[in-house]
């Protein structure tokens, strides 16, 4: 099939960019979106034009490197998929496709479709871990994790840090990303000792750079791992509880603790 692409080209961070139109001809419906761009790039190089810069690596939808706005939707029209796993069979011959980089203050454009997502790492640095040094671990089966809790943690841990949630959010908010990491660790028994300090630290750093959540649900719709906005509610709850119990308090039990409830409800 033949397509017309309108691609954002921008030389460097502080220059202005614009949409440039390219033709993609004889595109195989079985090719992935990135493979389609590969072919366009090969022709550009042959013509002596600089290829379109886009980030990509594993091309299996797991590394989180790739990502672009395709016709106004992060990762394109098919939900639950990263750009590398979006196949051209979802487009029609003659389609116009607009391709833009992620846009957010926290994701400055580096060149063309590549943006700097280092701000997400900063959120992890703020507390997205369990403070255990190598060698400090107890025998693995000493820590019992109910299957439903492990599954819930896994649902959150599936996040690939691609930044689509931020890109799609009308507020440029990173709530889905942050809440997924908060929940991944916060629902597990191993994550309890730091649960409330972690959420406060991560939210604070997140808010320095990103917008706030107004519950549009756009992030969930484009997340390649289909992470639920329920995790955002959970993060809000943990944050509120943390504020009421004070940073170091270990005396008050959590106001809401639904982990056990979850286990009975979900299985």
């Amino acid at each position: 099939m033949n397509l017309t692409l309108h691609v954002w080209r921008q030389k460097a961070r502080n220059t202005t960019g614009q949409f440039v139109t390219y033709k993609a001809t004889d595109v195989s419906p079985d090719a992935s979106f990135l493979e389609m761009l590969d072919v366009v790039n090969e022709t550009l190089i042959e013509k002596g034009e600089e290829p379109i810069l886009f980030e990509h690596d594993c091309r299996e939808g797991i590394c989180g490197s790739c990502g672009m706005m395709i016709n106004g939707v992060a990762h394109g029209p098919i939900g639950g998929t990263a750009t590398c796993q979006l196949h051209m069979r979802h487009f029609k011959d003659g389609d116009n496709i607009r391709i833009e980089p992620w846009r957010a203050r926290a994701f400055p454009v580096i060149k063309d479709l590549v943006v700097d997502r280092g701000s997400l790492d900063r959120i992890i640095q703020a507390g997205g871990y369990i403070s255990v040094n190598t060698g400090n671990a107890p025998e693995a089966n000493m820590i019992l994790v109910p299957k439903a809790v492990q599954e819930l943690s896994m649902d959150a841990a599936a996040c690939i840090q691609c930044g689509a949630c931020v890109a799609q959010c009308p507020n440029g908010a990173a709530q889905l990303f942050t809440s997924a990491k908060v929940a991944h660790l916060g629902v597990l028994p191993q994550g309890q000792p730091e649960r409330y300090e972690r959420v406060v630290k991560m939210v604070e750093v997140m808010e320095e750079m990103f917008g706030s959540c107004t519950n549009y649900g756009e992030c969930e719709a484009v997340c390649p791992k289909e992470i639920s906005i329920d995790f955002i509610a959970r993060m809000n709850r943990d944050y509120l509880v943390a504020q009421f119990r004070g940073p170091r308090s270990t005396i008050l039990p959590p106001l809401f603790n639904t982990e056990e409830e979850l286990v009975t409800n979900e299985t």
Partner: peptide, 16 residues
């Protein structure tokens, strides 16, 4: 042991 302590959600049986 290390991975579990870090919070890696390795698959579990119903007994945890």
């Amino acid at each position: 042991d290390q991975a579990v302590a870090q919070g890696v959600p390795l698959a579990r049986e119903y007994a945890g």
